[in-house]
Computed example of a mutant assay.
Amino acid sequence: MSYFQNSIDFIREKFASNEFIPLHAPVFSGNEKKYVLDTLDSTFVSSVGAYVDQAEQVMAQISQTQKAVAVVNGTSGLQIALQLAGVQRGDEVITQALTFVATANAIHYTGAEPIFIDVDLDTMGLSPKAVEEFLQEFGEKRENGTYNKKTGKRIAACVPMHTFGFPVHLEALLRVCEEWNIPIVEDAAESLGSYYKGKHTGSFGKLGVFSFNGNKIVTCGGGGMIVTQDEELGQLGKHLTTTAKVPHPYEYVHDQVGYNFRMPNLNAALICAQLEQLEMFLANKRALAIEYATFFEGQGMKFRKELEHTKANYWLMCIELENSKERNAFLKLSNENKVMTRPIWQLMYRLSMYQHCYRDAQKNAEYLEERIVNIPSSVRG
């Protein structure tokens, strides 16, 4: 298939390399070393320090929220966000099966169980229409929330994930969840720098959670951030993630079961330097996305682009192939040629620990699973 080889050659040209091309490599071109060395000199390398406070303030500004809480990683942040939203052991949480496993795992950590609802083809994220259809069939409104008529369990939250940085249809999803009194917790792990109708992802739900993992647009090796418009709820999140320790000059008093999910100041120094470059990173990636879109259109292949009224961060760029056979052939050829590509995640209900969970028909999710391939998306020098 000559157009596969043409694609590989084009990617090499865009990254000006004959060596191995990774999917998404970190770029440290700013104040990273300076801030990390400053942290070492201060000796405040653990969970207390000026850079932790600065990172939280900057992320609240970027995400257009009232409070941000720095955590050790996005998964832990999502777990706490679900707890803050009121999810309890024995509850159910609506989410999508087309996601990274951390989404389902975070739900499981709270003692709740995921309900897997289909995605939309255009966003690759949770479908408001599919959520509404599920609730109309199985939902039952009670004084203390919405319950699943089939299982008798409370449906305590809804977790959309903005796949590869493409925002879900947020207005429609908010409308459905408000009607059924179900709080939204946005898994915005992949969508730092993405907007829906001018508002940043993560700012629409009761809470939102971002990731700073090593393959994200900005990184501190790990790390994550919980954001919310409810400052009081955010303060509780800070308390819970810092072992629920009551402030005191020297006594160790903890007023509830908390978690040691604090972001160390050392990591916070790194993310502060990375966030200073966020706009540059986003512009660089957008320029690559434009070049990809033009090229793949000429090859008769579908390059995934942002929708009207949205602004995607183009975290991981992707193409849609004709079928699973072509997908597999492209994956094999590109990786053999040291151009890293990968398929979309295996759907959550195919994993042994989530096979028992409810799922709807998943027509769109399975369609995308067979066709989507991520291509190199790093910021270029």
Rank of each mutant, 00 (worst) to 15 (best):
D360V: 09
S76G: 15
G214S: 15
F134E: 03
F4K: 10
K285F: 02
D118E: 00
V159S: 01
N260H: 12
A329N: 11
I117H: 00
R350Q: 10
K14G: 09
M317P: 03
H200N: 01
G221I: 04
K129N: 07
L333W: 05
N73F: 10
V373S: 10
I344T: 11
F100V: 04
V69G: 00
H239C: 05
L282G: 00
I226C: 00
F44Q: 07
I107T: 01
Q96P: 14
E179M: 10
V93L: 11
L121R: 15
M340L: 15
T219F: 11
R154A: 12
L278K: 11
A361C: 03
G125M: 07
K199I: 13
L84E: 10
E306V: 05
A16L: 05
L236S: 14
I155S: 13
V87H: 06
T39Y: 11
I117C: 04
S377C: 10
Q136F: 13
Q355V: 02
E251A: 14
I217A: 01
F44P: 07
D187T: 07
K149I: 14
F4Y: 15
G258Q: 03
A106F: 06
Q274I: 05
H162I: 05
D9Q: 04
K150I: 12
L307T: 02
V58C: 13
W315G: 12
L192Q: 05
V246M: 03
T75V: 09
E179F: 13
S352V: 08
P249Q: 05
V159W: 01
Y196L: 09
G202F: 03
A273T: 00
S377I: 01
N337G: 08
V185L: 08
L282S: 00
A172W: 00
M353T: 14
F281H: 02
L98P: 05
G198W: 02
K14Y: 12
Q256R: 05
L236D: 15
P249A: 08
L266I: 15
E320I: 08
S47Q: 14
A293G: 15
M225D: 01
G74F: 11
G300F: 01
E279F: 06
D230S: 15
A25D: 10
L282R: 03
K311N: 08
K245W: 11
N323S: 06
P128T: 04
I155Q: 03
V36R: 04
